Amino acid sequence: MQLRNKRIIVTGAAQGVGESTARALAREGASVVAMDVDEDRVRATAHSIAAETGGDTTFQVVDVSDRGQVFDAVAAAADRLGGLDVLVNVAGVQRAKPAEELAPEDFDFLLNVNVRGTFYTNQAAFTAMKASGGGHIINFGSDAGMTAIRQLGGYAATKGAVHAWTRTIALEFAQHGVRANIVVPAMKTAMTRAGAKEGRAGVYAKVPLGGDLGDPDRDLAPVMVFLAGDGSRFMTGQTICVNGGIGMAR
């Protein structure tokens, strides 16, 4: 098992990419704390993973936009796990609208989860990782944060912020042995199915590898296992695109 003894938190773990990631990490022997705002779903996910793997997978109900909740939850998880090696911060939301129609409440919704949620989870994880002697923060970006996609202006702005923030903490946290990288996925999930028809659908039809989105279990999970393991120890500040070539970072 590649991740035996790894202590990992996965946010947004109730479904989709988060669930797939948590399951893959647990299969490789990691102890996983699955966090999500949806109590029923995250409980069911954690119980399912624990039953399948026989490993140590538990859950916590956390609203990542609430700083107090995040710091308390991460501290409790690190205490239970005996430290923290990896944070996989999947939690994110989308709202598709033409740019001129975005209202203040749309910006608040996107900023609170995608930007503040990233800041808070990363800060809390850094505190725990510094005490453990190092770790790896894996944030989720988006092709929308690197290129223009119609109707996703607000979402794109928040993901662009995640990209810039992650590069900055990679630089600042390195002296403490804490790495930070960005994963840019293009997977079939509830979020992508609900994306703007004129925006995401048109772009995704042009995916070079097969003309369609990837499968989280088959295409993304193995990459997440690698990033959570020791093989990625000399990588930080990087953008890892698992998107079939729809966008190419350098």
Rank of each mutant, 00 (worst) to 15 (best):
E100R: 10
I9E: 04
Q175P: 14
V70E: 04
I240N: 01
T58L: 04
D40H: 14
G247A: 11
V70M: 06
T57K: 13
H176F: 11
G55F: 01
A170Y: 14
E39N: 07
V90C: 08
V17F: 08
N139W: 09
R193H: 06
A73Q: 11
R233F: 10
E28N: 01
G199W: 15
D36S: 10
G195S: 14
E172M: 12
F140C: 04
F173N: 07
I137P: 14
L110Y: 04
N5H: 13
D230N: 09
I9Q: 10
A22C: 09
V162I: 09
T147Q: 03
R218H: 13
Q2H: 10
A22S: 11
G231I: 04
V183A: 05
R193Y: 01
V32S: 06
Y155C: 02
I8N: 02
R23C: 10
A96Y: 09
V42C: 05
G16H: 09
R250F: 09
I149V: 12
M146G: 03
A96V: 05
V203C: 01
V90W: 12
E198L: 02
N243T: 09
A103W: 04
F119K: 07
V242Y: 13
K188P: 06
Q15P: 12
R41Q: 08
T121A: 05
A170N: 12
P104Y: 00
R7M: 06
G211I: 02
P216L: 01
N112C: 03
L110S: 05
R27P: 00
S65L: 05
A44V: 14
G12C: 03
A228K: 04
H176L: 02
I149L: 06
A205S: 15
G177E: 00
F140I: 12
A221F: 07
N243D: 13
M1Y: 03
A180K: 13
G214K: 08
V86A: 03
M235N: 11
D215H: 09
V242P: 14
A99M: 12
A144F: 01
G12Y: 08
Q60E: 07
R193P: 05
R67S: 14
D85V: 04
D40Y: 11
V183L: 11
S142G: 05
L227G: 13
Q151G: 00
A221L: 05
R23M: 10
G54A: 01
R179A: 02
W165R: 07
R23G: 08
D108E: 07
Q238Y: 00
R167E: 00
I240Q: 00
L25I: 01
L152W: 08
V70H: 10
V42F: 08
G195F: 11
A34W: 03
A91D: 12
P208D: 08
G195W: 14
H136P: 12
G18N: 05
E101S: 02
D217R: 15
D36F: 07
V203Y: 12
D230M: 04
A144N: 08
T147L: 04
G135N: 01
G82V: 13
T21E: 00
R67C: 10
T57F: 02
T121S: 07
R116I: 03
I169L: 09
G199N: 11
P216D: 00
G214V: 07
G247W: 12
T11L: 10
A144Q: 02
G160Y: 06
L227Y: 15
V115H: 08
K197W: 05
L227N: 14
V203N: 06
S31N: 08
D66M: 03
D40K: 14
G18L: 02
N114S: 02
A201M: 07
P98S: 00
M191D: 07
